[in-house]
Design a protein around this nucleic acid. Sequence first.
DNA 1: CGATATCCGACGAAATCACTCGGATATCGA
DNA 2: TCGATATCCGAGTGATTTCGTCGGATATCG
Lengths: 139, 139
Amino acid sequence: MVQLAHHYGSGPVSLAGIAAEEDLPRAYLEQLVVNLREAGLVVSTRGAHGGYELTRTPALIPMSEVLRALEGPIAPMFCATDDPEHAMTCDRSSRCTVNVLWVRVRDAITATLDSMSLADLAPPRIGTPDDPHGALISQ
Amino acid sequence: MVQLAHHYGSGPVSLAGIAAEEDLPRAYLEQLVVNLREAGLVVSTRGAHGGYELTRTPALIPMSEVLRALEGPIAPMFCATDDPEHAMTCDRSSRCTVNVLWVRVRDAITATLDSMSLADLAPPRIGTPDDPHGALISQ
DNA sequence: CGATATCCGACGAAATCACTCGGATATCGA
DNA sequence: TCGATATCCGAGTGATTTCGTCGGATATCG
């Protein structure tokens, strides 16, 4: 995502290119990007000179959204999940007093994740003054 | 630890008792308590009528300490660990811009964990007015 | 002495993580 | 039209971690 942010506005970037830049296996990135696409963070164009690009400018992509796409709902414990759809209450919930702790931890995590955007992690590269979004500053 | 907090001040509690109250295997608790003892949160007395008890009143036991004892250093990522001893810097650290995010997440977690004590999770049981620590309120 | 405990080390099943592999499908440039 | 370049898709794998189990040694109390 940091790589995609760097190339934002310059057309699609292939996974092969990102794999080379980040020294990660291309086949693995392929798997990850499925989730990003389904989350609407990324669009793909198939065929030669295809690849992926962000659907929004990096400053408008909170890291909470990226993490949820890649790692699932934010939940330090299964009984304190972010996602109301998959909310779980364990069989211990009646006597359990620890849940409040996990909820507070979760809220602290989501708050910091909400407070940072992809732009915060993708500093404008020096030597590329043609980047139209390098000057964007989030929050 | 919540169970030990409940019984704080009334002598040692056996793992068999806690296992019954929490519906957890005793042999498993045995394994966990080793770490608590090594962290100095708990002392043991061997033999009949032995067991474990907290070394401090629950209000003076921050949950950060409990979690560190049970789960190791607080680190949402291996490159953002709590423990200066085991600080790791990955081979990607030169180009990696994501580390700051994990550090902020970690700090948010430790802050909330520091702000809660064991007493916050072990509400005084009603019907036990002889509990000398029921009135203690942390933070 | 025997019941009740903690101590200790090793072992095991299941889930998750970080991948790999093989191939089908779409698109572009020549 | 053809071939190179990409994404798409489903299945499988090896290492590690998590949540336990098991067997037995040691200490203490009544």
